[in-house]
């Protein structure tokens, strides 16, 4: 059963993404694309002629996708949260190396920004994991989802997590890594056709990855988890529709000043 979930994780993420595009359009009072649009895009991309800049660059995108899938699978398998965060870091680094491996200004800028994003959200994710550990006594997700009451014990950590969700799903105000109007998609820029598809699907997996973190805050109650995810999903899109993109350094500063202190305060609260 778990393996089926893992296998269908990208599709699940695609549905979330499709839903989001519709939702965003409606918030802007547009009709918006069809719900299944991400899948249309996927199939179309498979059909395109593939132009690559050079082989390692193209293959690193594939590696990014699979490494990300691996980390999402680790979530479903209930592994140690810390491993999952670092596996995800591995996937991101692969992408960053890909960004650096072409001689293109935008790709490099995008990779730089991805790195800074990493610096911003990774500590928060680890602190969230530490929070879970302190409350539940284990880093293992399998253990964590058997417990409960996380929201009551670590509300500030939850807010800190909320602050980094826009970074991960590339939503305003923290969509600096993609920043279409500035760096035309950043690291994605040199990909086309099939290899771009891997990055496109990796985005679906990012959705699953970050919303899983939101989900496990509910602990044993799956209904609450679903409600949390839905709520956060709506909230993130509302914020996306109400903010401009901030600078990369602003983002890092905001995350460090606000989210980090919230997280630390919460951990102190648990500990003391």
């Amino acid at each position: 059963m778990i393996w089926i979930w893992i296998a269908f994780a990208p599709i699940l993420g695609g549905l979330v993404y499709g839903g989001e595009r519709v939702l965003r359009a409606r918030m802007q009072r547009r009709q918006g694309p069809p719900f299944l649009q991400p899948f249309y895009d996927m199939f179309k991309l498979l059909d395109k002629r593939t132009l690559i800049v050079h082989a390692p660059h193209a293959l690193l995108a594939v590696a990014h996708f699979f490494a990300l899938w691996f980390s999402v699978a680790a979530i479903f398998l209930g592994w140690n949260l810390l491993y999952i965060v670092f596996l995800h870091l591995f996937a991101q680094i692969v992408l960053i190396l890909a960004g650096y491996s072409v001689r293109s200004a935008y790709s490099h800028l995008g990779a730089n920004r991805e790195l800074l994003m990493l610096v911003a959200y990774e500590p928060i994710l680890i602190l969230v994991a530490v929070g879970f550990y302190l409350v539940s006594g284990s880093f293992d997700i399998a253990q964590i989802v058997r417990g409960g009451g996380y929201l009551a014990q670590m509300p500030l950590l939850f807010i800190a997590l909320l602050m980094i969700v826009p970074i991960k799903v590339k939503k305003s105000p923290f969509d600096v890594g993609e920043a279409h109007q500035e760096i035309v998609g950043g690291v994605e820029i040199e990909y086309s056709g099939m290899f771009y598809e891997f990055l496109y699907m990796a985005r679906f997996l990012e959705y699953i990855f970050i919303y899983s973190f939101v989900f496990i805050f509910a602990g044993v109650s799956y209904a609450l988890g679903a409600a949390l995810v839905a709520g956060v999903f709506l909230l993130v899109n509302l914020v996306d529709n109400a903010t401009a993109r901030v600078h990369t350094m602003h983002m890092v500063k905001i995350i460090y000043a606000v989210a980090m202190s919230l997280a630390i305060a919460n951990i102190l609260w648990i500990v003391l």
Binding site: M27, Q28, D175, A179, Q181, A242, A244, R245
Partner: peptide, 16 residues
Amino acid sequence: TAENAGFEALFMQIMA
């Protein structure tokens, strides 16, 4: 300007 500042919703609002 709003679009270039990364504020898509505002772009849509003004265009509407």
